[in-house]
C-alpha cells in the first residue's frame, strides 16, 4: 500500500513537471501530446506498482509506445509549419529495444515461475522471506 502511494506521488510529480515544462514549448502537439503523456505516465505507474510481472511488461510497452506517440505528435505539428523533424530512426531503434527488453524480461519471468510457481511479485517476495 505504502509502495503504491509513493509510486503514485512520484508519477504525479514527474507528470506535473513534464506537463508544465512541455506546455511552455512552442511546438507542443496539443491533444495528441497530452494523450501520449497520459499513456507514458499510465505505463510508468503500472510498471512501478502492479504486482503481476506480466502486467509490468505490458506497462513497459505502453510507456514506450506513449513516448513514440509523443515524438510523432510533435513531428506532425511541426511538419505543418514547414519543418519536419520526425525522428523515425529513433522510433525504429526504440521499438527494437522495447521488443528485446520484453523478450528477455518474459524469459526471466518464465524461469522465475519454475522456481516459485507464481508470477506475482509480492508473493515471490513473501516466499523468498520464508526461505531465509
Amino acid at each position: 500500500m505504502m509502495r503504491k502511494v509513493v509510486s503514485l506521488l512520484a508519477v504525479a510529480l514527474i507528470g506535473a513537471v513534464l506537463i508544465v515544462a512541455l506546455a511552455k514549448m512552442p511546438e507542443f502537439g496539443g491533444g495528441t501530446a497530452f494523450a501520449s503523456l497520459f499513456l507514458f505516465l499510465l505505463g510508468l505507474y503500472v510498471m512501478l506498482t502492479d504486482s503481476n510481472l506480466i502486467k509490468k511488461v505490458i506497462g513497459l510497452n505502453i510507456m514506450d509506445t506513449g513516448i513514440f506517440l509523443f515524438f510523432i505528435a510533435l513531428g506532425y505539428r511541426s511538419s505543418t509549419r514547414g519543418a519536419a523533424y520526425m525522428p523515425s530512426p529513433l522510433i525504429f531503434g526504440g521499438l527494437a529495444a522495447v521488443v528485446s527488453f520484453t523478450a528477455i524480461g518474459l524469459a526471466m519471468i518464465v524461469r522465475l515461475y519454475k522456481y516459485y510457481g507464481t508470477i506475482d511479485a509480492e508473493e515471490i517476495m513473501r516466499k523468498r522471506g520464508e526461505d531465509e
Binding site: 513497459l60 515524438f71 525522428p87 529513433l90 526504440g94 527488453f101
Partner: peptide, 17 residues
C-alpha cells in the same frame, strides 16, 4: 533499465525536435 532507456529516448527526441 527499460525505464532509463525510455527517458534517454525521450530526451534525445526532444533535442532532435
Amino acid at each position: 533499465s527499460a525505464l532509463a532507456s525510455g527517458m534517454i529516448l525521450l530526451g534525445i527526441g526532444l533535442v532532435y525536435m
